[in-house]
Write a protein that binds this DNA or RNA. Structure first.
Length: 487
RNA sequence: GCGGAAAUAGCUCAGUUGGCAGAGCAUCAGUUUCCCAAACUGAAGGCCGCGGGUUCGAAUCCCGUUUUCCGCUCCA
């Protein structure tokens, strides 16, 4: 990361805290690593991004509907999805090469070098220790065999640790005799809540393929290293849409959503040159095609959204584990056979965007430290958030030029008239210039100022955040004027 | 997870060899001002990250710990 960009990133983080967007989590207790809280303006901005996504997906697409599934899901969900088995293996690090190995892989590759009988014995011992979760025993086994790191060539190992992706918790107020009975996980992705409700939604909303199910919500992952502000958090919010299609058409739908999702970002006025696709070469075992939409954050291009063609993997897995049919009867006529397509497990194209990452992209794009020359010729500067008006936490500041001569009363009437339609902020303290700067700092796109002329001709000045220009408009036109600009 | 650095008022930071805890801005109460911040008067604000140790005496020296940042490492 270049020093300038790093300084800029630090400045954005400080600004986010100073102006009520993002606070370190549990800060009075020295914080909790990789957990953040959203403040007054942060929670507004986050809600506005979520609402804009939700409306784009559901209200603007007749064939997409929403769900709000529980964070707690039946534990078998995560067996079916592969999260339990694929992401909880014991790991060990070589202290010299810093290389991390899965313990079973390390021992197995060593066993390959041994005569058949010895290898079989070794693997037998390993399996017994693994199933007993005997990490001390496994480490002793590695040491006794003098297994070396392929890179450093040393046997200087750390203790064995288990890296659990998922957070576990106990379900039910009363302890069970068998602890395992009570374990539930906090979901590591929202998608499974969509898959398990596939038929409920399809039937009750009478959806016909192709159709999508959208969901926003919290997800939880234990990251090995969680850093970079809200970019990688242990608790985060996803906005996901699973699009169910007829097998064989997933390729064209994948391409459709890949383009469609980038258009969504650009529709906010985000600059195209800050975006790029990153096509996955190495695919997960279930994926047919996958790409990321990357955004140029202050710390470089990073994934903000993923589009994946997941085939029928998830529904098939749930079908297998639940022993319930998760199929769709397609009445459309297959031109090749002249008969309906009939029953099948649909294929899925997933779009998955991190709300917190989207928040960070909007914030980092919006943040500007500007220098300019005042009318008098002196230098001046300001820190401003050029947040797209439709996402801005506060839409309109209502500012009486002075706090006497009846100006606050007029301002209060304007507040009353507008606050039901969009977020308004009233302030009469300090000079008008100071108040403009404070509004710039939280990204308020419009300020209106009530002055003495208002009493004569019922007009106010409206001042635009991005240009700092102002013009006079009638009091009666304020609401429509702002509403038009935040659409 | 490993290595390095940092932590003093809400923010940005000073703080002498180890000797009374400081400034600017912000905040609050007034005054002034009438369209682009930092005008005047006054007030409030601190277990110097936390816990030990050395010392007559620690923000300052030593040990531990937490958090953050930087580099490496991992990432469905």
């Amino acid at each position: 990361m270049a020093t300038n960009d790093n300084n800029r990133f630090q400045a954005i983080i400080a600004h986010a805290k100073e102006y009520g967007f993002v606070f370190p989590g549990s800060e009075i207790y020295d914080g909790l690593s990789a957990v953040y809280d959203y403040g007054p303006w942060g929670s507004e901005l986050k809600k506005n991004i979520r609402d804009y996504w939700w409306k784009s997906m559901t209200q603007l697409h007749e064939n997409i509907v929403g769900v709000d599934a529980a964070i707690f899901m039946h534990p078998t969900t995560w067996k079916a999805s592969g999260h339990v088995d694929n992401f909880s293996d014991p790991m060990i690090d070589n202290k010299d090469s810093k290389k991390r190995y899965r313990v079973d892989h390390l021992i197995e590759s060593y066993a390959d070098t041994l005569p058949q009988k010895e290898a079989a014995d070794l693997l037998g011992v390993m399996d017994r220790l693994l199933s007993a979760d005997d990490y001390a025993g496994l480490k002793k086994l590695i040491e006794d065999c003098q297994i070396k790191c392929a890179i450093s060539g040393t046997s200087n190992w750390t203790d064995i640790r288990q890296f659990n992706l998922m957070f576990k918790t106990e379900f039910g107020a009363v302890a069970s005799e068998n602890e395992e009975d009570n374990i539930v996980y906090l979901r590591p992705e929202t998608a499974q809540g969509i898959f398990v409700n596939f038929l409920n939604v399809q039937k009750t909303a009478r959806m016909k393929i192709p159709f999508g199910i959208a969901q926003t919500g919290k997800a939880f992952r234990n990251e090995i290293v969680a850093r970079q502000f809200i970019f990688r958090m242990r608790e985060f919010e996803q906005m996901e849409m699973q699009f169910f299609v007829r097998p064989g058409t997933e390729g064209e739908w994948y391409r459709f959503w890949k383009e469609e999702r980038l258009k969504w970002h650009l529709s906010l006025g985000m600059p195209a040159e800050k975006y790029r696709y990153h096509d996955h070469v190495k695919l997960a075992h279930y994926a047919k095609e996958a790409c990321d939409i990357e955004f140029e954050f202050p710390m470089g291009f990073k994934e903000v959204e993923g589009i994946h063609s997941r085939g029928d993997y998830d529904l098939s897995q749930h079908q297998l584990y639940s022993k319930k049919k998760l199929q769709y009867y397609d009445n459309d006529i297959n031109e090749a056979t002249g008969k309906p397509y009939g029953n099948y497990v649909p294929n899925v194209v997933e779009t998955s965007i991190g709300l917190d990452r989207m928040f960070l992209s909007v914030l980092s794009q919006a943040y500007q430290e500007e220098k300019f020359t005042k009318e008098g010729g002196s230098d001046d500067s300001r820190t401003v958030l050029h947040i797209p008006p439709k996402l801005a936490p506060v839409k309109l500041a209502v500012l009486p030029l002075t706090k006497k001569d009846g100006l606050p009363e007029i301002a209060r009437d304007i507040m009353k008239n507008c606050r039901g339609d969009f977020y308004c902020f009233y302030e009469e303290k300090d000079t008008i210039g100071k108040r403009y700067r404070r509004m710039d700092a939280i990204g308020t796109p419009f300020c209106i100022t009530i002055d003495h002329q208002t009493k004569d001709d019922q007009t106010v000045t409206i001042r635009y955040r991005d240009t700092m220009l102002q013009e006079r408009i009638p009091v009666a036109a304020i609401k429509d004027h702002v509403t038009e600009k935040i659409r």
